[in-house]
Each structure stands twice: as C-alpha cells, then as structure tokens.
Nucleic acid binder design. Structure first.
Length: 896
DNA sequence: AAAAGAACGTA
DNA sequence: CGTACGTTCTTTTC
C-alpha cells in the first residue's frame, strides 16, 4: 500500500477532464453575456476544486495536448484518426481554461510533439523517484501502465470526480487480471478503438490475459506464436504487426523534457486578486465563492475557531516528535506491554490498521515509546497483544467504533477503551465537531499530524505518521481533552458514551433481518399505484408533467390552475404537503389529492427500494449509528437510516412487517418509553400538575385536557385531547401560538387562549422553559440532567432570526438531550444484563425512545423482564418511567 | 459534474 | 413563526 504521509503530487490530464465537463453540462446554459461558452471551464474547475479538497495535494500540475499532431501520428498516420472534429464550442474554451488555471497559480504544461499523457508519465515517474505519492487523473486507459505502489490512477467512472475509481496495483489486477505494467500488452493485442488502433481480430481481454499468463509477455507470446492454435492463432500470426505497432504507440514517454522542476509545482495558496478578474469576466459567481471559501475557511476551524489558550497546548515549533516505533517480536512484546501498562496507568494509545473491514496491523504507544505490529494470527507476538487487548488494561483509541467492529470481525476482543478522543471532542463541541484524529491533534495539541491537514499545502519530508504514531497521538490527546471538559461532561464520557461504544459496535455487526420478498412485492405494488395516480393526475390537468418537480408543479398550480400563491421559498412558492392541503381547502381540485397520494406512494417506494438495496449477503441490514452526530446527544442512523422507517400510515407499517427475526430466533421484542420527553419536562420543571399526571398513571393527554378545559376526565372529547396533545408536544420545541394555530388549523385567538389555559394549570412548565433560555444566555450553554452541555453562541445575537432559533433550540436541548442520555444508559445496562444472564437474545436497534431486540428460543419472558427493569430504572426521576413492550414476528407485529 | 434546495420520513 | 436527524430527487450553475 502507498504511504499516505508522503507529499502528494497530483497530475491531471486537462483535456480528458475538460472534455467530460463539456459533455456533462449543457452548452446553452453556460455562456457569458458576450456569448463565450463556459461549460467546460466551469465543469473542469468545479471538479478540480473538489479534487483539491479531497486529495489535498502538496504539488500540482495540469497537462494538455498541444495539438493533434504528435510523434505518434508521425509514426502511424491513422493514430486517433477516427476522432471527429472537436466541437468549436469546446475548442475556444481551452485557452481560457489555461488562463484561469494560471491565475489560480496552477502550473499548466503542454509540449510539442507529445500528448498530455506523456507529460503525466514523466511527472509521475519523477515524482515517484523523488519520494512523492503520486495521483494521476486521466481518462485514458494507457495511464494504467504508470500504476505502482507510489502511483495511483484516478480514473473517471460513469459518475463524477467524487466517485473516481482508484487504481492501485491491486485494483488493476482485480479489474484487468494483469499487473499494471502488463496492461499495455493486453491493450496492444486487443486494440484500442478510441485511438483507432486495431488489435488482433477476435482477441478480447480474456484471450489476451490467457496468453499473457501462458507466455509471460507480449514478446513471449510472439516467440511462441506458432504454438497458438485455432482461428485466433491464425489471426495473431497474420496481424502480429498490429500488436507490435500498438505496443510501440501505447508506451508512454517518461522522460519528456519539461520546463519545470518538481518543487516548482508546489501548491500555493490561491491568490484571490489574480483569480477574481478572470472569474468575474467568465461570470462565475458561485465558483468564485467556492474558491474564496477554500482560501479562507479551509476545512476545520482554522484560525477562527481556535480554542481557548488553555486548551491548545504546545506550539507547533516545539512539538514533540513521535518516538521511533520498534517492531518487537515474541516474548519481547509481552515484556514491553507489561512495562508500558505500568508506565501509563491511564491507558496506552492504540490504533488499528484496517483493510477491508479487518485488522491487519496495530500500533501501541506510551508517551515515550511505541510499537507497531503486523497482525498475523499464530505469530508469537500476537498472543501477548491479544491478551492485552482483552484485558482490563485501559486503552485510548480514536474513532473506536469502526475499529472495534474490525477487531471483532478479526476475532479480537478489545476491552476497556476508556477514552475515545473523537467522542470526547464531540462532547466538548457538539456543534462543530472535529471529525478525525488529524483535526483533534490540530485543535487540542496545536500540532500537525504529518499528512492530512487540508490547509497545510507544505511539502513534508518523509516523516510519516505510522500506525504507531497515530496511537501515540491518541494517547497524548486523552489528558488534554479530559482537561478541557467540565466535570459533568467527563462523567457523561465515562459513564454514558464510552460504555456505549462497544454496544453500538455489536448492534451494527448484528444487523436486523429483513425480508426481501416482502419488500419486492411492496415495491411493485406501490410503483403500480404511483403510475396509476400519475395518470389520473395528468388527466385532470390535461398534460404530463414531472410530479416530482416543484418547479413544474408551480406552473400547474399557480399559472395553469390559477390557484393562490402559497408560502414562498427561496426559489418560488411551496408545494409541500402542508401548502397543498391549504390549497385543497381554499381551492378544491382533484389534482391536489391525486398529487398528495402520488407523493405518498413514491416516497414509500423509494424507502422500500433503498432498504431492499441495503440488505446484505447475510439477509440483514447493518446500519451505522452516528454516536457523535447530533448536537443534543441523540444518535443518528445512516446507510441506511433505520430511525425514519414509516409508521404513521397503513402502507408505512407494511414496511415494518418486512423487519423480522432471524432464523435462529423466535420473535422480535420492542420496548419504548412512553412520553419520555414530557416526563423529563415534568422532572425538570417540577410542575406539580404534570408530576401528579404521571404518578396517577392515567392517560396523560386526557388528564391534561380535563384540567385545561375544566371538564371531567370522562368528558374530554377526542378534539380536546388532540389539542392538548399538540400543545404538550409543541412545548418542548418552543412552539408559538402562531405555530399551534397552524398545526391545529384553528385561529390565532383560540390558540393563544389554549396556551393561556394550559399554562394556567401547568405554570411551572413555562417558568422552567423560560429559565432554561435565561440561564443559557448567561452561561452560553445548556446542560442535561446528566451534565451533557451544548453551547449556544447565537443566544445573544443581534440578529433576531438567529437569536430566536437559538432560543428554541436551547429550550429543547436539555429535554431531548436528557432523553438521549437516559436511553443510552439503559442500552448499556441492558446489554450487560443480557450478557450476565447468559441469554442469546440481543439488542439490534435504537430509535430514540425505542429499543428492538431479537429473542432467542425460550428467552422471551426473561428478556422482557430484564429490558423492563433496566429501561425503567435507568435513572431516578420525580416521575416513573413507563416502558411499553411488545413482541411479534415482525417489527410491526411487535408494536403494541 | 457538483452543489444547493425542496420535500419528507422518524422521534 | 416547532427541536433533532438522513435520504432522495430536481434544479441551478452562466
């Protein structure tokens, strides 16, 4: 594998990328006032900016073909002779593109008689020799021959620069079945249509690879040309000169004389004064913004977001150097580990090296020493390492969850990770989090991990951060982040977040069984329904439009049907479900209902299809939980998101029927907290009415309704119940009378009155909510019951919109956050209790206030008892915690 | 081709 | 003029 810590040289085939851009973007939409086409320029620069951000090259050049003529056309007149005339709209853009690149300080190279790929080959070869890691961006397959351990080809796939296919030697072998340096021989035999180079008739990739396997090289094949049987053998004997010629032509020249030295290609900060005029001339407004952002913002924090001085420790100049890591074998490692554990009672730094989700290596560090080991099961050092991992010896591991998963997949047990600096960093700054070890080191140690930092466009010597070095950085981060935390935050880290990490890792590995056949059936049913609805809708308006396009819908609704304008959005007028419902009320039209139904059907189908795609080879869906995602302390779920599976409609629930227990299990069990946020509000506000409501254990909304409307509980009508329910839930979000009136479709006066009556009876709630905001204005942050903090810098902003948004978020945060803390505690204790009871049943999913378990044969009752116990006693509040449990064959059946 | 916006699913 | 998320589809970019 290539070493990621070397300086990076990025070389780009300008024509190939510009050409892609030209055909990807509509020519007509991109021209300046005076008629200059700009689509290729715009697309190219847009892609290049993304490349710069993603790859963070330290050195950079873009090469172009100078003309169509080159030594290859002199050699073989027909070379590339089949290419049509270059469109004039494209031609004119190239010089301007080059001008723009030069303004950006990027070296542009072209050379008489050579093609761009020869320049790339030359730079790549020179870069490799000079110790660079080289990235070649080209759409020409000939550049495959350049690939080696230090040179990676980024080859445009069907879709975009963001999804460039990375060809390292292993990827080339996987795709083409030969090593990179052999690829041109394959191409020579097969021929290259796009270059007008015919190969051997009837010889394709498979035959060529087979021959190469037999005879080792093209030369070898030709030596044994008489041994090759069949028609293809005859073809080869007849057309061998084609192959010889092709091989000659597709060999890239690696020693083109160039007017620059490598170090002149160093990426310089972009000079806005040079870029602005040309971008302005091209009328590139948003691109200029992007460049400006790249220059100023540059990734994470930068100067603007530096921490208080107490946090940033060592200035970069006197940054300690990572200790030289040793490879210690056999019993020596056991001795080293024993000594290290004593030397660092707070824990050793750890870092795994992963490949394809498995552990292939690891680094372990103390403050002054580190070791690095390749993990080969059965090797002598493996045992000592494995024993230490599984022991209670404390470890510090940054971004632990994926590494714990890989460890588990590799059969390793990792116990007692006491600090994950990534999680710690999120607790300190839950909004703008540091996303990686590199970010954390920058912020909390004030040092730069060799490589990685996007704003550092400085070439580095071959000082590379090894796995052991990363372990060492983790170790040194731990005390610094701990010192930067309040005591309460430290407790949240130690008692809530760190114990949760292995629990989440286990849940993700388990996944949840999903029935493909049910999803497939549902998908086609919904698809059919959507098609029918669309057809009916088109009949209503007398034409076909894209019902998924808000823009086209606006035309239909406001122009064609002449309906009144709805809420305005940035780009026009809203066509969301709410707006359509309003229209239906004021201007009833069958189209509206059909449209809404169509939206439902397509949305559900889309969810069904994406779930179906996510089913793995084990028949299960493995989501990834984002432990450091939400600012409130909640988790998120992605790839796919299992926390937004429909439930409100009948069709939606049918999706949940596809979530089932696995074959080794008998059913699913779901357990959820009822009205958790209201209970937390009761606890925090100490409102006697609310506390009484929960202690009485009755229907909360009936209880509240009776008091708000001044009637007996028996006389609370469904409408009254709906109203107080909306009010209660809305409270925790900072709902206004206006919002309440809109949601309930009642007038403002009635909503205001409802709120007044509500607070008359439950006044402590209002007092509490106000006090949260006021205290937050003083402190600058809110805190959950457990001490989790969330800062609110906008609370004193002069900008009213910002300020009021911050106020609502602040008042919600302790409520949502405390609920998150609570269920996290419950998850950890439930997981532990299940293990201690020796059950095979297991926890699979978390949906904010709900946990889903897979029940093993004969364990249902015991599991339910454990879950009820642990969830309802996760913490002692002024009100009881009610846990609803259900069981069934599917997630839907298990709902109660 | 990439980014931004609209819409919508959950708690 | 209701908090917190993630995903997908369409439009814009000039």
């Amino acid at each position: 594998m290539s070493d990621p810590q070397k300086p990076t040289l990025l070389v780009v085939d300008g024509h190939s990328l510009a050409f892609r851009a030209f055909y990807a973007l509509p020519v007509d939409s991109f021209q300046t006032r005076d008629g200059q086409h700009t689509n290729a320029i715009h697309g190219f620069l847009s892609m290049l900016l993304l490349l710069l951000q993603n790859e963070k090259p330290t050195h950079l050049a873009v090469a172009f073909d100078k003309s169509r003529q080159s030594f290859r056309t002199r050699e073989y007149e027909e070379y590339k002779g089949n290419r049509g005339e270059t469109p004039v709209e494209f031609k004119g853009q190239v010089p301007i593109l080059q001008e723009a690149l030069q303004a950006m300080g990027i070296t542009v190279l072209e050379k008489d008689d050579f093609e761009a790929d020869d320049i790339l080959a030359t730079l790549a070869t020179r870069g490799e020799a000079a110790g660079y890691r080289v990235l070649v961006v080209s759409g020409d397959r000939d550049t495959i021959q350049l690939v080696n351990d230090d040179i990676t080809l980024l080859y445009p796939n069907t879709q975009g620069v963001s999804q460039l296919k990375r060809y390292d030697p292993a990827a080339v072998v996987e795709r083409y079945g030969v090593r990179p340096e052999q690829y041109p021989e394959i191409a020579a035999l097969v021929g290259e249509t796009s270059d007008n180079l015919p190969g051997i008739t009837k010889v394709g990739e498979k035959t060529a690879v087979k021959w190469l396997g037999l005879y080792g090289s093209l030369e070898g094949i030709l030596e044994h040309i008489d041994e090759i049987k069949g028609v293809v053998g005859d073809n080869l004997r007849r057309e061998r000169e084609n192959a010889v010629r092709n091989r000659k032509l597709n060999r890239l020249v690696r020693d083109v004389e160039l007017p620059v030295e490598l170090d002149e290609l160093e990426a310089k900060p972009i000079d806005l004064d040079a870029v602005t005029p040309i971008f302005t001339r091209l009328e590139f407004r948003t691109l200029l913004e992007r460049v400006t952002k790249l220059v100023n913002g540059n990734g994470n924090g930068g100067a603007a977001g530096k921490p208080a001085a107490s946090v940033a420790a060592v200035p970069a100049e006197d940054a300690p150097k990572a200790p030289t890591s040793a490879r210690i074998a056999g019993t020596d490692l056991a001795i080293w580990l024993d000594a290290a554990v004593v030397a660092e009672p707070a824990g050793l730094g750890l870092q795994f090296e992963l490949l394809d989700g498995k552990v292939v290596g690891a680094g372990v560090a103390t403050k002054s020493e580190s070791v690095e080991l390749a993990l080969v099961p059965g090797a002598p050092e493996f045992e000592a390492f494995e024993a230490w991992l599984a022991s209670d010896a404390p470890k510090v591991l940054t971004d632990a969850k994926p590494q714990l998963k890989a460890a588990a997949r590799s059969g390793l047990t990792v116990a007692n990770v006491v600090v994950d600096p990534l999680v710690a960093g999120w607790l300190i700054r839950p909004n703008l989090q540091e996303k990686s070890l590199v970010d954390l080191v920058d912020r909390y140690l004030g040092e730069t991990v060799p490589q990685g930092d996007p704003s550092q466009l400085v070439a580095l010597e071959d000082e590379s951060a090894s796995t052991a070095d990363l372990a060492w950085y983790s170790l040194r981060l731990a005390p610094v982040v701990l010192a930067a935390m309040s005591e309460g935050t430290r407790r949240v880290l130690a008692e809530i977040e760190m114990p949760l990490v292995p629990v989440l890792a286990a849940m993700e590995l388990r996944g949840v069984a999903v029935d493909h056949d049910r999803l497939a059936g549902l998908s086609s049913e919904l698809g059919g329904r959507a098609a029918d609805l669309a057809e009916s809708a088109f009949v209503e308006i007398g034409r076909e439009v894209n019902l998924g396009s808000p823009k086209q819908l606006q035309e239909v609704l406001f122009d064609q049907l002449g309906m009144p304008k709805t809420r305005s959005t940035k780009t026009g007028y809203s066509t969301d479900a709410n707006a359509l419902a309003d229209l239906q009320e004021s201007n009833p039209h069958p189209f509206l209902g059909l449209l809404l139904e169509h939206r439902d059907a397509t949305k559900l189908r889309q969810i069904v299809d994406s779930l179906d795609k996510a089913i793995g080879s084990d028949g299960r869906i493995h989501t990834t939980y984002g432990q450091v995602g939400a600012a409130t302390g909640r988790m998120s779920s992605n790839d796919p998101n299992l926390q937004n599976i429909p439930i409100r409609t009948e069709d939606g629930r049918r999706i949940r029927e596809a979530f089932r227990h696995g074959a080794e299990y008998t059913e699913l069990l779901t357990a959820d907290y009822s009205q958790i946020e209201m209970r937390i509000m009761a606890h925090l506000s100490e409102d006697p009415g609310l506390i009484e409501a929960f202690n009485a254990g009755e229907d909360l909304h009936r209880f509240v309704g009776a008091r708000v409307f001044g009637v007996d509980e028996a006389d609370v009508s469904p409408l009254m119940r709906t109203k107080v329910k909306a009010m209660s839930y809305g409270l925790a979000y900072g709902l206004s009378a206006f919002g309440l009136s809109k949601q309930l479709r009642i007038d403002r006066a009635e909503a205001t009155q409802l709120m007044k009556d509500y607070f008359e009876r439950f006044g402590a709630v209002r007092v509490y909510l106000r006090s949260v905001v006021e205290q937050a204005k003083i402190d600058g942050y809110t805190e959950t019951i457990f001490g989790r903090r969330r800062p609110f810098p906008d609370l004193n902003s002069p900008n009213r919109v910002l300020r009021e948004n911050a106020e609502r978020a602040a008042l919600n945060s302790p409520i949502q956050g405390s609920a998150a803390d609570l269920i996290k505690l419950a998850m950890t204790s439930t997981e532990r209790a299940i293990a201690e009871a020796g059950l095979r049943s297991r926890m699979l999913m978390q949906v904010h206030d709900e946990l889903v378990f897979e029940v093993a044969e004969g364990e249902a009752d015991e599991l339910e008892a454990i879950v009820r116990d642990k969830m309802s006693h996760a913490v002692d509040l002024l009100v009881p915690l009610d846990v609803q449990v259900g069981r069934g064959a599917s997630w839907d059946d298990a709902a109660h």
